[in-house]
Every structure is written in C-alpha cells, then in structure tokens.
Nucleic acid binder design. Structure first.
Length: 735
RNA sequence: GCGAGAGUGGCGUAAUUGGUAGCCGCGCAGGACUUAGGAUCCUGUGCCGCAAGGCGUGGGGGUUCGAGUCCCCCCUCUCGCACCA
C-alpha cells in the first residue's frame, strides 16, 4: 500500500476509487448514499468534536513520554504498531524518544472494558485476546521504608501546611506492586527502573558514577531491544530499605528489567520464587531463600530455578504465616501489613493510556491552540473543522514535529480566548481514532449538524453483527468500545457496547501458502471476475472453507462452483410448468431450505452451498427436467451468494421485481419429512449393515428387520445380552 | 515462555454435537456424445485384500454398548502476546 513520494491526498482518493470499483464489481450490497471517508472534513469535523468532548471530560491529556520512534517514517508508533521491535509499516528497528503527546485515558475504563466482555456475543478467542491485552493483575502495593533517608522541604505538603518555617522530614518510602505478597518474607532486595523518580535520591555518593553510567546506557537503548534482550544487567544504588514483614535490610538495586511503565516502576525481588529475580540474584550473588515449599519440611533454598508453584504451595520461613497455603497467605499477609500501614490491595492493568498523537501530515489536526497567556485552549466547536491545509511538502523531517508546523499561515492563529497571537497544535490524531466511531456516523452520514442523530442511532445501533479480521481483536475493537462507553457516559448514547455480536473471518491462503505481494501469489479479483464471473468468484470464496477459519484458494477448485452455477442456470432455463413437481424432489427442496436458512446466520456458508449443490444434483439426476416450482425457491436461496445470476434467473421465471424484494422461501416441515429412515445396525459396536424402516419405528420392529438380514444376523452368535436403540438412527446388539 | 486455535482420503472440506466417518467440491479412472474437446453428461473413487473380512480421523492410554467428538499424557502446525512483577 505504501507508495513513497505520492501525495496522501492523491493516494487516498485513488484507493477509495479502486476499492469502490471492486466492491461494485463483486456486487457487494452496500448503501452508497451513506458512504463515509475519514479524510473528508465533513467526517473529521466530528472526530475533532469527539476529541473536544474527551478533553472537556478530562479524558484527554498531554504528557511527556517515551515513545517508539520510527527513524524511516519519522513518526511515533503505538506499542501495538511495533512488531518484534520493528515498525509495522516499514520494518525498520524502532528507537526510543521523549516527546509531548496527547493521550486518551483508556485505563480509566479498563475495569469496565474487561467486565463487559462476559456479556458480549463475541468469538471466545477475540474476547481472550482483549482480556490478555487489558491484563488485569490483582495484588498489593507495599511500601518499603528506605534506611536513613529523609525527604525535606520544598514539597507541597510542607509548604501548604502552614508550619511556619519548620521543616518536617519525612522518611522516603519505595512503593512496589506485587501479585505475590505472600512471598514478602523472601523478598531480599528491591529493584527500581532506571527512570524511577527517586533514583537520584537513592543513589549514594560512592555509587553515583556507576549508577549514572547505567542510567545513560539504558536511556540510549530503544524500548524494544530493552524488552527483547533478557540478559539481566543492573547496578547497586548504595541504599537499603527495610522489609516491613521480616524487618531485615534489603539492598536497593537498579535494573532495566523493571519497567517504569508498569506498576510503580519498582519491585520487591523474591529470587526464590520468581524466575527473573532468581536469574538476577544468581548473576549478582544475592541469596535466594525459600518461603514457599511443597510441604512444611521443604525449607531449603531453591538452587536450580525459582519455585513458582502458586496454588498448592505451603508457606515456610514466614513467621506466623508458616503452614498457610499460598492463596491463604496472600490475604492474611496483606491484611496484616495493611493494619500496620505498609500495604494495600491493588489492581493493576497492563493496558496503557492511548497515545493518539501523530507527528505526521495526513490526519485530522488535533483541535487545540496554544496561547502564551491562556495555555492550551480548545478550538470552539463553532470553528470546527480545523481543516488540514493542502501541503505540497508533506514529508516528516527529523525534528519530531509535524510537517504542519511549516505552514506558517495555518500554524499562527489568534487565541480563541484572549485574541492574542497563538499557535495551533501540529499533531494530528491516530487513524484508529477515525475508525473507532465510524459505525455511529454511517447511519447519520448525511447530517451536517450533528455527529450522529439520536433517533437514527436508536433505530440502527448498536451493530448487531460485526464481522472483521482478527488483526482488529485488540486495537480497533477495544478503542471503539472505549469511545462508545465515554459517549454513553456523556449521555449521548443509550448503549455502552457498540458491537453486540462479533465474529472474525479466517485467513484465506493460496495453494497452501500465505498470500503476499513478495511471493507474488495474491488473488487479483479482476482476473477471476474476468475468467469465471463475479458470482462464481464470490460463491467460491464462501465455499472454499469454513468462514471463521479461512481456507485454501485453489484456482482449479473454482471450476466446481462455476459448474454448479451453470447447472443452476440450465435448470431454470429448461424448467417446465407442465404437471406437478416431484414429491421426492420437493422433500429435498424443503430440506435444503431448512439447511441454508440455518447455515447462513451461523456463518456456515460452505455447507449452505454444498447443500444447494446436492439439491441441484437431485434436480437433474438421470437427466430429468426440473419443474419450475422446484427451481424457483432455489434461486432465492442462491441470491445472497450469486446475486447477478439470481436476478437474471428470477426474471426468466417471470418476475418483474428484484429477487431481493421477493423475501425468503418458506420452509414446510411436513414437506421435508421423510417417511422411511435408514437405521444403522451394529453388533457389539461394529456396524454390520443398515435396515430401511418406517420413520419412528419402535425397537422390536427394527430388531426384527435387522435379524431378517442374513448379513447382519450371522454376527449375532448368541442371544443378545443387551440391545441399544436410538430412534431413527441406530440399533446396537450386544451379544 | 504464556495464551488461543487447529491436526480427518491425493487435495479443499463435511459429520444432525457421543450414534453408519468421508456429504459437497477439486483431482483421478472408466464410459457416453463427438471430426475434435482443457466442453457437457453418466459411473466409480479412504487404505489393504480375489473374497470373506480387516484397518482407518497426528501418536499413546482411558471412559462407554458405541469416541473424529468426552478425560489424561505426548507430538506437530498456525496466530496473538512476551522481562507486566
């Protein structure tokens, strides 16, 4: 998709045209009166409006933060856009930079985003992906008092307290998050991240040079290599803290395996029971005592690896808690520490706030104006949209500032509050923000006074069936849910979940291999439509495998679908109206109606098509001529798959309105019912034959019929000990 | 490493959810119609065996009258996440 040098305006317009042409060529049913384009000011006006709504509600904020920086695309990437340390777009190794960015407070909604999943009709794999992404951890925050270290004046608590010049020293505490508070007696040292705010304070003069060197090295490293490289490195800060449980002194270390962005940026290391801490302790010669054993006698320190059993373990070397199981100890120890003011239960999430800033040209400008007197001022709603100016020179440079800053006429504005000279925000918003609310805009696309009309929205939304790729499992779907929840809280939506049902389609591979441009095996729809027709192409895509799993696109196999459509075509053209339809064929027809009607909502398109193929085989068996009433409902059934052919054939059958206005064929259970059934006969569980019996026949009659069959009877060597009969299905004689 | 999903004929797949394994399609084989056919139409097609029959759903155990389906162990593949305390 990426075409270097091409102006994004042109690129976007071309792609929309190309996509539209393909959709129309394939007969995709879409309401073209409601087309939306995120790059259209009529659309992004409301994306900007959404930003302002978040800003007003305190859910949009600006913060300095380390970001993933792609040196080739010269832009910031979300963590989600970094794949194995490389830029998702161009594959370049990503670096770390510090920039001021706009964030949306999605973590405020982490709990709801997680809890609501339980009541959504989504594929389990997608829900699991979201749960893992949100990454809830229940544990405790524990405070460790640092030995001989006090914080003095200058802090807000002292100056605001009116203590008339008296300076009250407060002990420095290091707070850590742990999911294993039960192991606190085994915590032998603390580790802080290199970026930890207390790092300077903690570092003693003797250790300063070494610590500074370590911090500098860590700062140079990009975020990704740091996480990929799992060799433990670290440096002693010189400080000691007090273990609130054991009272023992613990050295405070600094290491880059502790991440500032998770928890408190500091950990209590329990080397006996955590693999990473174990590795670190071994490297730096620190002790690895045991506090959890297989039983009460299992007290010797682990030597080969950390003992991480966390369910059936029993506490040892842990004072009054010895003998408790791990889950019991978790509660008891947190309660005990809480009483003494050094711990509290805490829930932590892996999810980070959503960085929506992009230092790029092509995107909706973030509607903020910076004024030296007033600070950041939101653009008044009446001034929306903030239109992206046409720029010939749109490429980002190495400054980390959006190309928009180079357009002085656009960039310099007066402050909406005080009227003095001010500057526009030059970041544009993430494309995921555009796509996180398009389903709200779509039904109201023609409204220019509101983002979405309440009455229209009430009628059409939430989306009752959403089908997409699993690549959206965590990004698009999570952001959309978040946006919807906020709009709900703002009183603008009656629902808080946008997609009642979600299913992910599978991946289609080609001749056994993944399709890729480099391999040159992508399917170009034009060629197939040209050669086989749009209907055969569409129907084949539905037929080649289970929809939710994908399948293997084989050029040779498409001929089978084409043959089916040809046979359908011939059947309609040859159909007679003389006489009556055949009862057996009508039975098969109604069985087919039932099957297709059930399969479509279940996304079992491949079996629905197989059922219609079977029916056509029955229709034409032994070169018989089909009756018009036998084929007419079939044309309705096939219409969603092969709309062009169905529309033509519907006309051939004498209708003057569209087949899509004709409704769905009615299923008649009586016509579908079989009067006789084939029952499998087993002897000792092995199938030995079948018997034809009237439907719903009772066991004695079926047994009699089975014994009358010599091929079956010969296996019944003694008198039956037991006979199992499953009505209309199976008879098993145990001898 | 953690999480999710999947292993069925030569191939893509199906199986009323514990009840005849292989529907439908590709391919292949034989035949018909043909000057001809990369068209169309019939017939056959899991493997071994002349047959009777036996064997078969990644491998090994188990539950059951009966297992592709349920339980335990193992192997392989695909896709996410990955120093998350």
């Amino acid at each position: 998709m990426k075409r270097p040098g091409l102006h994004p305006q042109k690129w976007t317009v071309d792609n929309i045209a190309k996509g539209t042409r393909e959709l129309k060529m394939l007969g995709i049913l879409y309401d073209w009166d409601r087309e939306v384009a995120a790059c259209d000011p009529d659309y992004y006006k409301w994306t900007q409006w959404l930003f302002l709504l978040f800003y007003e509600r305190g859910l949009a904020y600006r913060a300095m933060s380390p970001v993933n920086w792609c040196p080739v695309d010269k832009t910031v990437l979300a963590n989600e856009q970094v794949i194995n340390g490389a830029c998702e777009r161009c594959g370049t190794q990503v670096e770390q930079r510090f920039l001021e960015q706009w964030f949306f407070s999605i973590t405020d909604y982490a709990g709801r985003l997680l809890d609501n999943l339980d009541r959504l009709d989504w594929s389990e794999s997608t829900k699991t992906a979201q749960r893992n992404w949100i990454g809830k951890s229940e544990g405790a925050e524990v405070a460790f008092r640092v030995q001989d270290l006090m914080e003095f004046a200058g802090s807000a608590t002292v100056s605001g307290g009116g203590m008339s010049g008296e300076v009250i020293p407060t002990p420095v505490e290091l707070r850590v998050f742990t999911t294993r508070p039960d192991t606190i007696f085994g915590a032998t040292f603390l580790v802080v991240a290199p970026e930890h705010p207390l790092a300077d304070l903690l570092t003693t003069d003797e250790q300063r040079a070494e610590v500074e060197a370590y911090r500098e090295a860590a700062a140079k490293q990009d975020i990704v290599t740091r996480k990929v490289n799992k060799d433990k490195t670290g440096v002693f800060t010189g400080s000691y803290a007090v273990n609130p449980a054991s009272g023992e002194l613990m050295p405070v270390w600094m290491a880059d395996y502790v991440l500032m962005e998770y928890g408190t940026g500091a950990i209590m290391a329990v080397p006996g029971h955590d693999e990473r801490d174990f590795e670190f302790a071994r490297k730096f010669g620190l002790p690895t005592p045991r506090v959890v054993g297989r039983d009460l006698h299992d007290t010797a320190p682990p030597t080969d690896a950390a003992f991480t059993e966390s369910v059936n373990g029993v506490m040892v070397n842990s004072g009054q808690f010895n003998g408790l199981t791990v889950p019991e100890a978790k509660h008891a120890i947190v309660a005990w520490l809480a009483e003494r003011g050094s711990a509290k239960p805490v829930v932590n999430y892996r999810l980070h706030d959503w960085c929506i800033s992009r230092q790029r040209y092509w995107g909706p400008p973030i509607p903020i104006i910076y004024c030296d007197a007033c600070g950041p001022v939101p653009v008044p709603e009446s001034d929306l949209p903030v239109v992206l100016p046409p720029l010939e020179d749109f490429k980002p440079d190495d400054s980390g500032v959006s190309p928009l800053a180079r357009d002085e006429a656009w960039y310099r504005v007066s402050c909406p509050q005080c009227g003095k000279a001010a500057r526009r925000e030059t970041d544009v918003s993430d494309t995921f923000l555009d796509s996180s609310w398009y389903f709200l805009r779509y039904p109201s696309a023609n409204r220019d006074d509101v983002a979405f009309d309440p009455a229209v929205t009430r009628h059409w939304l939430p989306v009752n069936s959403y089908i997409g790729g699993n690549e959206h499992a965590v990004l698009h779907l999570l952001y959309s849910r978040f946006i919807t929840m906020v709009l709900h809280d703002a009183g603008l939506l009656e629902f808080e979940e946008p997609f009642t049902r979600f299913r992910a389609h599978g991946t289609i591979i080609r001749e056994g291999a993944k399709m890729s441009k480099s391999r040159g095996n992508v399917v170009n729809p034009d060629e197939y439509v040209e050669k086989w027709g749009a209907d055969a192409f569409r129907t084949y895509l539905m037929f080649l495998g289970p929809y939710e799993e994908g399948g293997d696109f084989r050029d040779q196999s498409i001929s089978g679908v084409r043959r089916f459509l040809d046979r359908l075509w011939a059947s309609v053209h040859e159909a007679t109206r003389a006489g009556d339809p055949d009862a057996a064929v009508m039975r098969k027809l109604h069985q087919t109606i039932r099957k297709v009607t059930d399969d479509i909502p279940a996304l079992s398109y491949n079996t629905a098509i197989a059922a219609m193929m079977e029916y056509v085989n029955v229709l034409r068996a032994h070169e018989r001529t089909p009756h018009a009433r036998e084929v007419e409902p079939l044309v309705q059934l096939v219409a969603p798959f092969a709309p062009h052919a169905a529309e033509e054939l519907w006309e051939v059958l004498g209708h003057d309105r569209s087949v899509f206005d004709a409704g769905w064929p009615a299923f008649d259970a009586a016509l579908a019912a079989e009067e006789s059934v084939t029952v499998a006969v087993q002897v000792n569980g092995k199938t030995r034959g079948t018997v034809q019996v009237p439907k719903d026949a009772e066991q004695p009659a079926v047994l009699e019929a089975a014994m009358a069959d010599a091929g079956i009877a010969k296996f019944v060597t003694g008198s039956p000990k037991k006979v199992i009969y499953v009505r209309n299905r199976l008879l098993n004689v145990v001898v």
